[in-house]
């Protein structure tokens, strides 16, 4: 049974504590808190992977450093706050974990944080795509 890291469990619990309408506002806070890309990516957009599962143009990059710690970066336009929110949840929840912890995150995490009714299952698929691509990048970089 894959276990949910504390960082993601906290995010999930924060959402589940709220009423539906307030869950949207928390998602908006995440959207507003998505960190800017470091300069090295802004100058090299080719390093970023486009997440096709999302309706808005969102790009991610995942690093695994020498001590096996994962850092995730993402960028999405201001006019796509839902997608920015999804990316921000994963950037905040996955960064700092070990590679094996990231790979053990349950694939259905997006469906467990109480957003299905507020956002719709169809839109949540975008977050599932983001998580899947982040994990794939971790796997690829571990092998490298």
């Amino acid at each position: 049974m894959p276990s949910l890291p504390d960082s993601l469990a906290r995010i999930r619990d924060d959402f589940l504590e709220l009423e539906q309408q307030d869950r949207l506002l928390l998602l908006l806070e995440f959207a507003n808190d998505l960190p800017e890309l470091p300069d090295r990516f802004r100058d090299h957009p080719d390093l970023l992977e486009r997440v096709e599962e999302c309706q808005a143009p969102v790009f991610i990059f995942v690093e695994v450093d020498d001590d096996d710690t994962v850092q995730m970066f993402a960028t999405a336009p201001r006019e796509a706050p839902t997608t920015r929110g999804f990316a921000s949840i994963l950037v905040q929840g996955l960064s700092g974990l070990s590679a094996s912890e990231v790979l053990a995150v349950p694939d259905d995490f997006p469906q467990t944080i109480g957003l299905s009714a507020a956002v719709s299952p169809l839109r949540l698929r975008g977050m599932t795509g983001l998580l899947g691509r982040a994990k794939r990048q971790v796997t690829a970089k571990q092998a490298a």
């Binding site: 949207l24 998602l27 309706q55 201001r78 796509a80 706050p81 839902t82 997608t83 956002v119 839109r123």
Partner: peptide, 9 residues
Amino acid sequence: DEDVLLYET
């Protein structure tokens, strides 16, 4: 909107 959060922004 297409984006369900845009109104809130």
